[in-house]
């Protein structure tokens, strides 16, 4: 048994047309024993960035608290909010700091990046547990159901999905992937980001 699978949980992020979405399950377990069905793995970083932290649950909390501290200090010093690309670099370097005794988390980042012209473009990225960044154009997955998520997402995702279509795609991908994984599930939460608003919806899914 890998330590990455000890508590279970999965996250996925997808790019749409002028929007991004990020979704996770809500289960916290100790191997096959379920402990909580309200365990948050996706956290807001700014009004335009979310970070998903699947992996060992103790490190979910530790990293969330650490990212919050570092982002707040950045905001104070810079007097502006952090951009998704910059935040991705922060995530990467925070993880690489622990190269030889890593946090057992594979973060997923979703946000709307401000371009020099003042418009916004969707941004997603994922890293491994030591901070190697992967910038994808379509979707990124992580967690115990990542192989299943890859399969379903590969089949359902299309280019230039509008907000509602993207929501449907990511929701179906998540729900169907976690149904095939014993260590993920117990409800799903989806965050949909456009340039000026965030929509958060929780889905029931199979509660067994």
């Amino acid at each position: 048994m890998s330590i990455m699978e000890y508590n279970g949980g999965s996250v996925i992020a997808m790019v749409g047309k002028n929007c991004v979405a990020i979704a996770s399950d809500l289960r916290l377990g100790v191997q096959s024993l379920g402990i909580a069905s309200n365990f948050q793995k996706i956290f807001p970083v700014t009004d335009r960035i979310f970070v998903g932290l699947p992996g060992l649950a103790t490190d979910v909390t530790t990293l969330h608290e650490q990212f919050r501290y570092r982002v707040n200090m950045y905001t104070i010093k810079e007097e502006r909010e952090i951009e998704p690309e910059t935040f991705a670099a922060l995530v990467s370097s925070t993880l690489y700091e622990r190269r030889f005794g890593p946090y057992f988390i594979e973060p997923v980042i979703a946000g709307m990046q401000r371009t020099p012209s003042g418009s916004y473009k969707p941004f997603i990225a994922a890293t491994d547990l030591i901070g190697c960044l992967n910038f994808a154009k379509d979707f990124v997955v992580a967690g115990t159901a990542s192989d299943k998520l890859f399969g379903v997402a590969e089949g359902l995702w299309e280019e230039d999905l509008g907000p509602e279509d993207l929501f449907e795609t990511i929701s179906q991908t998540m729900l169907n992937a976690v149904d095939r994984d014993t260590n993920s599930g117990w409800g799903v939460v989806v965050h949909l980001l456009t340039k000026d608003k965030v929509i958060t919806r929780t889905l029931k899914g199979r509660m067994d």
Partner: peptide, 13 residues
């Protein structure tokens, strides 16, 4: 002010 902001963030952490 800078000191206070850091102290507040430390408490939050």
């Amino acid at each position: 002010v800078n000191y206070a902001r850091q102290a507040a963030q430390r408490h939050l952490y």
